[in-house]
Computed example of a mutant assay.
Amino acid sequence: MAQSSTTQRVNRSKRLVSIKDIAKETGVSVCTVSLVMNNKDRNRVSKAVAQKIRETAKDMGYKPNSVARSLRTSKSNTLGFVTDEIATTPYAGRVLQGAQDAARKLGYILLTANTNNDADLENQEITALRRYNVDGFLYAMMYHRKVDIPEALEGSPTVVVDSEDAAGKVPSIYPDDELAGYDATKRLIQAGCRRIVYYGTEADIIAQGLRFEGYKRALAESGIPFDDALVVNVLEMTNAADEAARVLDEIKPDGIFCFNDVRATFIYEAARERGVRIGADVSVISIDNQPFITDVLKPSLTTLELPHYEMGFEAIRQLVGMLDGDEAVKDLKSDHGVAVQGHRDGAEMALRCRVIERDSIVS
């Protein structure tokens, strides 16, 4: 007696489904199925047939034989994620999460190496990843800066994450800090603030200069004269508390844009000591959205979230696009519903930060 279609499917589920099984099920050749499953069907297989093959493969539970594919294509379908300290930092760990999500959707495995800012260890880890025949690398940093790509990565497809390649040869993805400064200041202006302090940092880093430029651009567009007396740059371990007190005692702003959430904590403490009501007497906004800060401060802090997840996700899109072509990544979408917003300048891509509305701005 002939087996039913259902019985055949059950039997198939007990073993690995091959492209021959898919070809038989769809009534096409093995070659056609192979083209589709390896994303080489563009202009060679009709869209309707390709869609039918992919749907059938999914229904049948087809899993690519990664070993056979590696032998056939000289590809391992693994990617290296080399980072200074992101992998051990919960705050920035969403970069890794975004990269893992995108890699999984595209059929790649991500191998992570944390170097602890040790150049020798970095070279050792990259050499170890090369032994696994990884197809390409993400080179991820903890914060936005210009970096020199290690010699060990030369010749390998590479994308820099949360920093810029100093030589401008490798694609780079990082936050749009100028736009973040603009958006933060604009949000205070929209709340009616006109005397806005920029409570920045004395550290000589890219984000400081760009966020300050965004602050000035927002003021200029709104017809608010720039006043250097409203610019207060501090270091967390030295003068942040004293300067926060001076901001409230002497400058008396109606709005404060803090360089980051950590600096906002000094403003909150100074306000508490003086009975100044944040969200009522003065509006405060910052950048980072660090949960161990924003979940504790009262009233809750309005802040801009750095696009960590988006940077990791988009970096994988670009890296796999380099390896397999743009067609292979054109349908890649995040399960988190996160839309990547940014602008590209050559090989560099700056991503927009999202404003997370809470209670620290006067309504």
Rank of each mutant, 00 (worst) to 15 (best):
V82N: 04
T201L: 06
G93W: 07
N11I: 10
K58S: 14
R344W: 05
F292C: 11
K58N: 13
E357L: 08
F292D: 15
G168I: 10
D84H: 10
H343T: 14
V232M: 10
A113G: 15
S156P: 03
P291T: 13
A244I: 05
L129V: 04
D249L: 10
Y309M: 03
L71K: 00
A264N: 04
N65A: 02
D228G: 13
D162S: 08
R352Y: 08
N11P: 02
S76Y: 03
A57C: 06
Q341K: 15
L16T: 12
L106K: 03
K298P: 07
T127W: 04
R277N: 13
V82T: 06
R69N: 09
E327G: 14
Y143G: 09
T88N: 11
A347N: 12
A87E: 09
L219E: 05
M322D: 07
K63W: 03
Y174R: 04
S13E: 07
S222P: 02
K58Y: 12
M311V: 10
S29G: 15
D148P: 10
V320M: 08
A102V: 04
S172D: 08
V284D: 00
T56W: 03
L306N: 05
R217T: 13
G325M: 05
L351Q: 01
A99M: 04
S300C: 09
R344F: 02
A184H: 00
F81D: 01
R145N: 11
A103G: 06
G192L: 04
E122C: 11
I251P: 01
D288N: 15
R272G: 09
L79C: 03
A140I: 07
D249R: 12
L79T: 01
V159S: 00
S13C: 07
H336W: 13
